[in-house]
Design a protein around this nucleic acid. Structure first.
Lengths: 347, 347
DNA sequence: CTGTTAGCGCCTTCAT
DNA sequence: ATGAAGGCGCTAACAG
């Protein structure tokens, strides 16, 4: 009844003896280094396979003995979600130090692609890996590709640039996130018919555009009785979002659903309460912050679509590390899920 | 703009020199080992603090050089969720081998507490750590406590025994999971009023009982128009669940919601389709398996409350390892969340 | 109570 | 193309 997954107690030396070669040769074969006769390679590989030999990672790390430096390029400004990611990076500091890893955070303006590109270019050569909350823009794409060409490992975080040659994306599928939001608004609205409002930061932001796309997809095909109003662009600012939404409520008295794609949540909530419709309108937004947590508990927000910021911070570091060391990435582990958070499953 | 989290390039030797002692003394202080004069301890600690020194984990692991063995005691039988956890353990084998960790899976009957207790007792002394899907029963509790007393690290998995002295629980808060299910059934039922059915494996299983408790809590306080019918106990078996539910549908034609607390999902779905109400009844269950995935895509199930089995497998191993090594547990990372999975955010 | 010393398993020159 | 040997930073005997 006991399925065993027992470890190899073997060492390089054992393999070397078994293959009739020296330690160094086994090491060369293990890392596909040149300078070994094909025939010898075969013999050594056979011995490795036969014993299902796994080199001891701790020994390898110690012997390699290199410290690594990673940079996290994050938007400046008061975006609470980004602040959470930075906070979780901070919590990892002991973990990082114990592995001789250095992580630096670099702030940059999200809405200015050339500034972002410049920040990235400036990093070249100084880091083993870079994680960046990216804008999808030609200049940014070029900067990412330059880093990659210079041998730096690059991971996009939260917002992707799929057309670049970045090594990995750590974040959610935003189209699916938008679809999830649409399904929630539609289903929670029940049998009612009426209008649905959308507030986004900007449709120029790839993640926002993708979410809106997914949202509209679901509304059109599954909830034809709910009419989607034109997207309001609040630039993730509270006041602007509030004003635009207030005006919209003035023009439509049959709004039953509201999808807040980005930040500016405070303003959106204020606009709702001004018209006294907090409880009637189905309100779905993104991310669990101090504010959205409160709104969920109060019943003002009905659901938040979220990506776990702690997981994203740790996944980005682990992926960069794996890339730097040439180790495999554990896709299953590093995948970021689309979480639906309602009042009763608040983390 | 660059907040740095730079690693200590320092080593034990540096600290030793700075404190004016030898390597061994620093090591003793670092691990709170006896045999050092209080005054010396202070000096060394000061030097450690001053430099924010972190010992290099890879070096420590290598020097300690102990292989560890862990046992996973899991229910036998065809429970797909448990099989997923075992599968994910299997996927970790390379990771485990590279760290000289051995993991063995031991099957035992879930519904027989004395068999479980016996299995646990039999493990004593052979393992550094044990993860167990536990039944909350006095015999099991005693067996767990015996293991703990013998120095084995014990983690309960998926189902907890809070009254035992287990070191850690890896799993969800089942009361909150039940509340989440209740909120979903209630809200997705919309304005409708009618009856709600509950199918559980057994109310003797702690996790099932807790989920039902949470579910009823929400129904009573928030959806008074929905009457909850008495719990059906299907023993997680398809046929039995199907029959009981079919009979219930025969007696009530106003059932608008259905909560499947455990397994036996196939039977529940069949009963629903027999009466041709798959699309009208709001159906919420647990866990994402091949079957529930299909039912979600078909629109038969509306939501699945889930705990990520891959995360649970990895968290259990990491927690056991941390406990065995005396390292801190990263609570945030190891916490298992209650996931709401609907069609559009299927993982 | 404190210091010295020999590894742990692998990587990396440097010889051969 | 292959081997020998030193060392990465820490732990654990063993001396003193």
């Amino acid at each position: 009844m006991a399925e065993t997954l027992t470890p190899t107690a073997l060492t390089l030396k054992d393999i070397a003896r078994e293959a009739g070669v020296s330690l160094a040769t086994v090491d060369r074969v293990l890392h596909n280094r040149p300078g070994v006769r094909p025939d010898t390679v075969r013999r050594v590989k056979a011995a490795i396979e036969r014993n299902a030999f796994q080199p001891h990672v701790a020994a390898a790390e110690l012997a390699r003995g290199r410290a690594r430096r990673f940079a996290f390029v994050m938007p400046s400004g008061p975006n609470p979600f980004m602040q959470q990611i930075e906070a979780y990076l901070g919590e990892m500091s002991a973990w990082l130090a114990a592995r001789r890893l250095g992580v630096e955070t670099i702030a940059t303006d999200v809405f200015d692609p050339s500034a972002l590109a410049a920040s990235l270019e400036a990093l070249s050569g100084d880091y083993d890996g870079v994680a960046v909350v990216a804008l999808d823009h030609p200049g940014v794409r070029a900067a990412i590709n330059d880093l990659v060409d210079a041998g730096t490992k690059v991971v996009t975080l939260v917002s992707d640039v799929p057309s670049s040659r970045r090594h990995h994306y750590v974040g959610i599928d935003n189209i699916a996130a938008g679809r999830t939001a649409g399904a929630l608004v539609g289903r929670l609205a029940g049998q009612r018919s009426g209008k649905v409002a959308i507030v986004a930061g900007s449709q120029g932001l790839r993640d926002h555009a993708e979410r809106i796309f997914g949202f509209n997809q679901v509304m059109a095909t599954e909830f034809p009785d709910l009419g989607v109003l034109p997207v309001l662009e609040g630039r993730d600012e509270d006041d602007r979002s509030e004003q635009m939404l207030a005006r919209l409520f003035g023009r439509h008295d049959d709004i039953v659903g509201l999808y807040n794609v980005g930040a500016g949540t405070q303003g959106v909530a204020r606009a709702l309460s001004e018209v006294g419709r907090e409880k009637q309108v189905v309100f779905v937004g993104h991310d669990v912050t101090a504010l959205t947590r409160r709104l969920l508990l109060q019943g003002v927000m009905d659901a938040a679509i979220s990506q776990n910021p702690g997981h994203e911070a740790r996944a980005a570091v682990r992926v960069l590390l794996a890339l730097a060391r040439g180790e495999p990435i554990l896709r299953e582990q590093e995948k970021i899920r689309i979480d639906i958070v309602m009042r009763d499953n608040l983390p």
